[in-house]
C-alpha cells in the first residue's frame, strides 16, 4: 500500500476543510479538557474520602489537659473513665467496630497536614507537641443513619471531650466535589456529542469534495480500507491535536493550581497528584480517539459504500 498517497490525501483533506478541522479540534479539545477535569475531581473526591476515613465513622475524642469541656474535669481522661467508654463501645448494639487512635498517631497526621512555607507559621506549628493532641476512638456504626444513639450515650460521659460525626464536616465538601464533577461531566457529554456530530459532518464534506476520486477508486477496485484511510487519518489528526490540547490544559491546572496553590498552601486534604492526572489523561485520550474514530468508521461506511 502506498502510504504516500494516504498522507498527501490526509494533508489535502485537512487543508481543504481548514475551518471544519479547527472547529473539530476546538470542540474535541474543550470537551476532553472538561472530561479530564471531571475525572480529576472524581479522583479528588475519592482521595478525600480515603484521607478523612470512612464517612460512616464517628470519632470519640478524649480529654487532654487543655480540654474545656465540662466532662473533662480531671484533665486527661483517666483509665477508669476510659474503661467505662470502652465498655459502652463493646456493648452498644449500634457499634460495629472501633479503633483507638493515640496522640502519637494524631500528631503524625497533624504534622502531615500543617506544613507551611511561612516562617512565622512554621514557628507556631513547631511549638505544638504530641501532648497537645487528643486520644480518640474511631467508631464504625452498623447503620450509619443511626448514629444519634451512640452519640448521646457517649457525649455525656466523663472523660469524653466531644463526639464528632465526621459526616457533618465532610459531607458539604464531598457534595461540592461531586457537584463540580457532575457539572463538568454533563457539559463534557454535550460537547462530546457535538464533536461526534462534527466528525460526521466533516467526513460528509470531505467525501463530497473527493467524490470523483472515490468513484474512480471504487471502480478500479481500491480496497475499502485504502479509500477510508485518509478520512480516518484526518479525524485521527484532529483527535490527537485535541487530546494534546486537553493534556496541556489539565497539566496546566495541575502545575499552576494544584501544585502551585493547593498542595503547598492548603493541607486540609491530600490533593490529586501527577499520577492521578496521568490516569485521567490516559482515559481522556482513549475517549477522544474512540469518540472520533467510531463516528468516522460509521460515516465512511455509509458514504463510501461499495
Amino acid at each position: 500500500m502506498q502510504l504516500k498517497y494516504v498522507f498527501s490525501e490526509t494533508g489535502n483533506g485537512l487543508k481543504r476543510n481548514v475551518s471544519m478541522t479547527i472547529a473539530l479540534v476546538v470542540t474535541i479539545f474543550i470537551s476532553l479538557t472538561l472530561v479530564g477535569l471531571g475525572l480529576l475531581l472524581n479522583a479528588q473526591a475519592n482521595k478525600a474520602e480515603d484521607y478523612w476515613g470512612s464517612k460512616l465513622q464517628i470519632s470519640v475524642v478524649l480529654c487532654n489537659q487543655n480540654s474545656r469541656s465540662p466532662h473533662c474535669t480531671s484533665g486527661e481522661t483517666n483509665p477508669a473513665q476510659q474503661a467505662a467508654i470502652v465498655d459502652i463501645l463493646n456493648t452498644h448494639p449500634e457499634v460495629a467496630s472501633y479503633s483507638y487512635e493515640t496522640k502519637a498517631q494524631a500528631f503524625k497526621t497533624w504534622k502531615k497536614i500543617y506544613v507551611s512555607k511561612d516562617a512565622e507559621e512554621r514557628q507556631i506549628y513547631a511549638a505544638v507537641t504530641e501532648n497537645d493532641m487528643q486520644n480518640s476512638y474511631r467508631v464504625t456504626l452498623k447503620d450509619p443513619q443511626q448514629y444519634r444513639g451512640v452519640e448521646s450515650a457517649l457525649s455525656g460521659m466523663d472523660g469524653v471531650d466531644k463526639v464528632n460525626d465526621l459526616r457533618d464536616v465532610l459531607q458539604p465538601i464531598l457534595t461540592t466535589f461531586n457537584k463540580m464533577k457532575w457539572g463538568a461531566l454533563v457539559v463534557a457529554a454535550f460537547l462530546l456529542l457535538a464533536a461526534v456530530l462534527q466528525v460526521s459532518n466533516a467526513i460528509r464534506l470531505a467525501a463530497f469534495a473527493r467524490r470523483k476520486e472515490i468513484g474512480i477508486m471504487r471502480l478500479v477496485g481500491a480496497s475499502n480500507l485504502y479509500i477510508s484511510l485518509p478520512f480516518l487519518m484526518e479525524t485521527l489528526v484532529a483527535a490527537v491535536i485535541g487530546v494534546a490540547g486537553a493534556a496541556l490544559a489539565v497539566g496546566g491546572v495541575m502545575y499552576f493550581f494544584v501544585y502551585g496553590n493547593l498542595r503547598p498552601d492548603l493541607h486540609v486534604v491530600e490533593w490529586v497528584s501527577w499520577r492521578d492526572a496521568g490516569t485521567a489523561l490516559a482515559e481522556v485520550a482513549a475517549l477522544g480517539i474512540l469518540a472520533t474514530l467510531i463516528p468516522t468508521l460509521v460515516t465512511t461506511r455509509k458514504y463510501l459504500k461499495v
Binding site: K212, E213, G215, I216, R218, L219, V220, G221, A222, S223, N224, V306
Partner: peptide, 22 residues
C-alpha cells in the same frame, strides 16, 4: 461478500460517456 468486490473490480475496466478524469 462485499470485501471481495474490490478484487472483482480489478478484473474489470470501465469507461464512461463523460470520461471521468481527475
Amino acid at each position: 461478500a462485499s470485501w471481495k468486490v474490490p478484487a472483482l473490480r480489478r478484473k474489470i475496466g470501465t469507461v464512461f460517456q463523460d470520461f471521468r478524469l481527475l
